[in-house]
Computed example of a mutant assay.
Amino acid sequence: MTNPVSVLTVPAFQDNYLWLIHDGKHAVAVDPGDAAPILAALNDHGLVLTAILLTHHHADHIGGVPQLLQHYEVPVFGPENDAIAAVTDPLAEGDHLKVPGLDLELRVLDVPGHTRGHIAYVRDGAEPWVFCGDTLFAGGCGRLFEGTPEQMTSSLGKLAALPAETKVFCAHEYTLSNLRFALTVEPGNEFLQQRWHDESSKRERGMPTVPSTIGLERATNPFLRSWEPAIGELLAAEGRVAPNASPLAVFAALRQWKNNF
């Protein structure tokens, strides 16, 4: 009988979260930007690394890969369109990955916007997960370093369409900063007000605010709510969009506003 899989949170740098998916024996590292905390967590929990999963090419997500490969000769899965030299098994939307060493299958979504080739890994079933890198954050979304607003809204739409109970494993502890912005955009949102209280309490106790859920993001994340009339009206009143602007125009204005918030 195979052991159930769970996810271990591995903090790194100032605000990154690295992830270890494991069954008590074997583990897969997701976006290991730094090898040291991953190696320490593997040692502390008696785990053996069997694979590495990457979502995109930024250094804080791939920087630890070379050192991990010095300790473990494992496959490296990652986006086929993000030019990561270490990737041995390139992936794109529609691919299904049987995770080495674990009783776990993940499917791949193309979610460009933050980078051109960014992908996400989805676990379907009774306990759904998504590892979405820097595309969707708790209360926010990634900056458009390489992609367009059209690409990012399409990517976020794919993630928002996942079941409401899907746990969102994003890669940064940006939640309170994101929620401050969200409350500026949608001050009358009662779900958002409650979320601010809940997440602030977690941070005061030194707890992570991630994972969130897709349902929580739909209810409180302004970047998944650009079609809401109240948001468009507020941006129009601020002179950031024309009256009756499209959801795409509202999204682009929101992202630009957040860049300088």
Rank of each mutant, 00 (worst) to 15 (best):
E73S: 15
A92R: 15
R218A: 01
F191D: 15
L162I: 03
I52Q: 00
G46E: 10
L136H: 08
A120L: 03
L136V: 11
P79F: 08
A182W: 04
W19S: 04
I21E: 06
P208G: 05
Y72A: 08
E127V: 11
D134S: 09
L136N: 07
L234T: 03
D31T: 04
N178K: 02
D23A: 11
L53C: 12
P100C: 01
D31G: 12
E150K: 05
L97Y: 01
A219G: 02
M152N: 07
Q14R: 14
L183P: 09
H22P: 10
V74P: 02
T153D: 05
N16K: 09
G63S: 07
G46P: 06
V30C: 12
A161W: 03
T166I: 08
A27I: 09
H26V: 07
V241P: 02
T135A: 07
V87L: 12
W129S: 00
L192A: 07
C170A: 14
G188I: 06
A171G: 15
E93K: 03
R240Y: 07
L39R: 09
D89M: 13
P211K: 06
L109S: 02
E204P: 04
Q14A: 15
T2E: 13
E105D: 13
E190M: 01
A41G: 10
F261H: 09
A51K: 01
P222R: 08
